[in-house]
């Protein structure tokens, strides 16, 4: 299982930024089981890149493939199958149902395509949000919401997990706990991690660091 990028470049990004990047307009691939760190300063198109991989946007030239399937050419059903089975994600803007409890947010993902035994409560305890499970996500702090989104992303099978600034509102101790949990789950699946952040994450031991 591979993510293959071929000459990918957002149509809206300045040419100078594309020229300086290690990813834009280059041929590059990510392998299953690999830990990738993507360092991307503001405005370099980090979130756009994540959205391109997840099949949410198509405003780019070049192509991105998940194995043999070109992501931009997948139909709605194929995209849904990819999202529920092959690629999991933690969005920078989290995308939670704010009117619903933390538990409902996680459970609605889990029930779609559950992976392993139900361990939502244990995970919540490990990340220190067990007491927030019944609380509406909308009234949780941003850090708590980040942890809800991380636990949600770990409920399904995947070959890659894409994390877009997953620890931006967490202190180092909580970030380490979250990363440890993510890495454990990734090992269970033999999957790869693509962690994108503004700066290198010091406690994340990546196999490759790529600058966007």
């Amino acid at each position: 299982m591979q993510i293959i990028i071929k000459k990918l470049a957002p149509v809206f990004l300045e040419k100078e930024k594309i020229a300086q990047s290690d990813i834009w307009n280059k041929d590059i691939s990510f392998n299953k089981g690999e830990k990738i760190q993507l360092v991307a300063p503001s405005g370099s198109g980090k979130t756009s890149f994540v959205h391109f991989l997840y099949g949410m946007r198509k405003d780019y030239t070049g192509a991105a493939f998940l194995n043999d399937s070109e992501i931009s050419k997948m139909n709605a059903e194929q995209t849904a199958a990819m999202r529920s089975n092959q690629m999991s994600i933690v969005f920078q803007d989290l995308r939670l149902f704010t009117e619903h409890s933390a538990m409902e947010n996680i459970a609605v993902k889990r029930v779609l395509n559950p992976f392993g035994e139900d361990s939502i409560t244990e995970m919540a305890e490990r990340l220190g949000i067990a007491s927030k499970l019944k609380q509406h996500a909308g009234i949780c702090s941003y850090g708590e919401r980040q942890r809800i989104a991380i636990i949600r992303a770990l409920q399904q099978p995947f070959d890659f997990i894409v994390l877009d600034e997953p620890f931006s509102h967490l202190d180092e101790a909580n970030s380490k706990k979250a990363l440890a949990l993510i890495e454990e789950e990734v090992v269970k699946r033999g999957a790869g991690i693509i962690l994108a952040d503004l700066e290198p994450v010091s406690f994340y031991k990546a196999d490759r660091t790529i600058h966007l």
Partner: peptide, 13 residues
């Protein structure tokens, strides 16, 4: 909410 369900991987069909 429907959009978010689709984003999470729910099939539109």
């Amino acid at each position: 909410n429907l959009q978010l369900l689709l984003t999470l991987g729910y099939s539109p069909g």
